[in-house]
Simulated assay, not measured.
Amino acid sequence: MPTAPRTTAAHTPARPSLTERRKAETQLEIARTAAALFAERGPGVTADEIARTAGVALRTFYRYFRTKEDAVAPLLAVGVRQWIDDLAEATARPDAPPTRAALEQAARRALTPTDGPAEEALRWTRGLLRAMPGDPALRAVWHRVHHDSEEELQPVLARLTGADPLDVRLAAAAANTAMRVAVEEWAAGDARADGPHGPAELVARGMRALTAGLPGLDERPDGAGGGNAGPGNG
């Protein structure tokens, strides 16, 4: 779900310039508008409608995005990558749980709405996913964002597990797939986002199933309390 990215104590990136911040804010505002329109009206939405509703000129829209479907990418990217930042932050603490438990806990937090904007973001996501069967380009954006997310997860898992590259890729693919499928399955039904059949419960079930046979995930991160620990459910 779309939330503001957090930074860890170990790595604080340089503050973007004012121009870069304004550009990012404009992109995200257009993305929110596009997501809301797709969720409400489906694939019939046009780039001109998105631009007009967002309060920007059509030429400004095309300065940022190639197509109307590309406009939702910044919002989706913030949502599906947020849990990676949370995972990195949680496993940097001295009391960090084993990686398997940390993955599930971070995924649960990412898909548990804690306020009105988070609930609204999940409603947008549900609407977007329901519009995708009629708009292959929109589905392509969804899968591209998840592919990028999976690649970003790999160095985090490599640091946490010390596993070989193949095992790291498998773990990243399993965790990312659990996130994607949980949201897609929830979006296809009518369950509440904060209920017993919400995306947080679905992702916990998927995470356990898909990572069950992967080695190295029951080790505690280096420097996080020392020693080994058994699997945890979060």
Rank of each mutant, 00 (worst) to 15 (best):
G134P: 14
L129P: 04
K68F: 12
L103Q: 13
H146S: 04
R130E: 00
A118G: 10
E151G: 14
Q105M: 08
R59Q: 10
A131H: 02
G79E: 15
G189H: 05
A171I: 12
A187C: 02
G116H: 06
E120T: 15
G162A: 06
Y62S: 08
A106W: 06
L122W: 01
L138S: 01
H147I: 07
L138I: 04
A187D: 06
D190Y: 06
R109C: 06
V156I: 13
A191E: 01
T177Y: 04
A106P: 03
K68E: 02
D85K: 00
A182V: 10
A172D: 00
E184R: 01
D85S: 12
T60K: 07
R100P: 03
L129D: 11
A158E: 00
R180Q: 14
A140H: 11
D167G: 05
A92L: 03
R144Q: 15
T125W: 06
M179L: 14
W83P: 01
V141Q: 06
V80T: 13
A188S: 14
R100D: 10
A101M: 15
P98T: 07
P165T: 12
T60M: 09
R126F: 03
A102P: 15
L166E: 13
E152A: 15
G127T: 07
D135W: 06
L129E: 00
A137F: 07
A121Q: 01
P97N: 06
P155G: 14
H143K: 13
D164F: 07
R81D: 06
V72F: 08
A163F: 03
D135R: 04
A96W: 11
A110L: 11
L157C: 12
P98A: 11
H143M: 13
A110M: 08
D167P: 05
R159H: 09
G127S: 00
G116F: 04
D86F: 13
D135C: 04
P97H: 05
N176W: 11
E151L: 15
H143T: 15
A118N: 08
R59V: 05
P94D: 13
V78H: 03
A110Y: 14
P165W: 10
T161Q: 11
F61A: 02
R126K: 04
Q154N: 14
R93N: 02
G127E: 07
A88Q: 07
D70C: 06
S149A: 09
L160H: 06
K68L: 11
R123I: 05
T91Y: 01
E152D: 10
